[in-house]
Simulated scan of single mutants.
Amino acid sequence: MDFAVYQLRSFWEVARTGSLTKSAKNLGYSQSSITAHVRSLESRVGVPLFYRLPHGVRLTAAGETFQSYVGKIFNVMDEMSTALKNNGEATGRVVVGATALLMEYEMEGLVRECRYRYPHVQVSLKVMTSKDVEKAVASGGVDIGLTLACGQGEAPAGVLRQALFPVPFVPVGAPGMQSGPAPRTVERVLVVDPDCASQEVLLRHLASVQESVPSLMETGSTRSALGLAGAGLGVAMVPEAAVDGAAGPAGPVVLEDLPRASVHVQALWSGDGWLSPAVSAFLDLARRARGSHVRPPHGERGAADAADGAADAADAGADEGGQGVSGAAAPVMV
């Protein structure tokens, strides 16, 4: 279907005001021109877009659907205009939903890197559970979702996903547990996000080696989980990078007789439409991330940038050869 921008603007104004006369005055057209614009659109889509009432007009169900897509078209046009004014540099806002675990140990680095590389991109963060992240991506509540996953799993229809980088998890408990009698019985497991894939390995192991099922206690944050584990109130599965910062005489220790886990940070985004420059920029940055456990010190920025430059060159060559985006594995549509 071919639509002229002036026709879409006429439709938008009529939908906003509910009046052909007011719309004509606001846009500087004659009423007959506005009427012609609307009729031309209705002829192209094949259905009425407005109910004609004695005093004005009202959108039909088809008109409401059409209005939502016209809004998206105008948003894309505005973003294109802004990007061109900034010489093609990525600009705009991206809303990222992530689990508490990722907010504590991965998001700070990503946001800082985004600010460094894309100063005109505004990142807004939302803390969610793993299940809520998936729902928010599917509904459009967030532009990008970041969760932890052990495998492909299932995601809502119309959502694209891609594994980014691994995060090693280790089981921790009070110092006295390491030297206690074996096998021990774990009575309580401390969890930050009960839906997080990192918890599955520990819970499956405990179910196979002890008769009693441990209770679960949600801690709200990794810091709380570490403190409670160090105090002997349970066992927690936490990112290995978090244990280094909690080391000390009264801090938790890694329990070597319990299994470790390696899970991947997973990015999710909508596969139903066009991605804005801001969303594309942040997603590309997330694809290149290496994770907090291997992130170079700040003083090594130059080396990291050189490595990224080499990666850019390799990606460009791959794109020319039809090998995909950023040299990463192709996303899976679910």
Rank of each mutant, 00 (worst) to 15 (best):
L125C: 04
M77S: 13
I34K: 00
F169E: 08
S270D: 10
H120T: 14
G273N: 06
R295Q: 12
A90Y: 03
T185D: 12
A163F: 14
K85T: 08
L27Q: 13
V253L: 08
G145Q: 02
P166A: 05
A261P: 03
Q210D: 07
C114Q: 13
V38N: 06
G18N: 04
R58Q: 14
A98M: 07
S33E: 12
G180E: 07
R301P: 00
A314N: 08
M217Y: 10
V213Q: 13
P214M: 06
D193H: 06
G153Y: 02
P239T: 08
A289F: 09
L41Y: 03
G273K: 12
A306T: 11
A98H: 06
G232P: 10
E113G: 00
G291V: 11
S40N: 14
G92M: 09
G56C: 11
C114A: 15
A318D: 14
V235N: 04
G248T: 12
L268R: 05
F165I: 04
L226I: 08
L233N: 14
T147D: 00
A4V: 02
L203E: 11
L216P: 05
A278V: 04
P296H: 12
F50M: 06
P156A: 09
R115E: 15
V45G: 07
M107F: 04
G158C: 06
A328H: 14
A197H: 04
Y29C: 02
A289G: 14
G248I: 10
V133P: 09
K22A: 10
A246P: 13
I34D: 01
V192N: 05
F50T: 11
S326G: 09
G273Y: 03
L41A: 01
D244F: 14
G97C: 03
A306C: 06
V325K: 10
T147V: 14
A98Q: 05
V243Q: 04
V263R: 05
A281S: 13
H264T: 12
F74H: 11
S224D: 15
R223G: 00
S130G: 05
A329H: 08
R287M: 10
D312P: 13
A318E: 14
T35Q: 15
S23Q: 06
R112C: 07
W269V: 02
A174C: 15
W12I: 02
F169L: 12
I144Q: 01
F50C: 11
A286E: 03
G18L: 12
I144C: 03
G273P: 04
T147W: 00
A83G: 06
Q152S: 08
A314W: 13
L190D: 04
D132I: 04
Q67N: 11
G88P: 10
A307D: 15
A318W: 11
R188Y: 03
R301D: 07
D315V: 00
A328V: 15
V265S: 08
A330G: 03
R290D: 05
A311Y: 01
I34N: 02
Q178R: 14
Y51N: 13
G88E: 07
A225R: 05
V159M: 01
E89W: 01
P119Y: 07
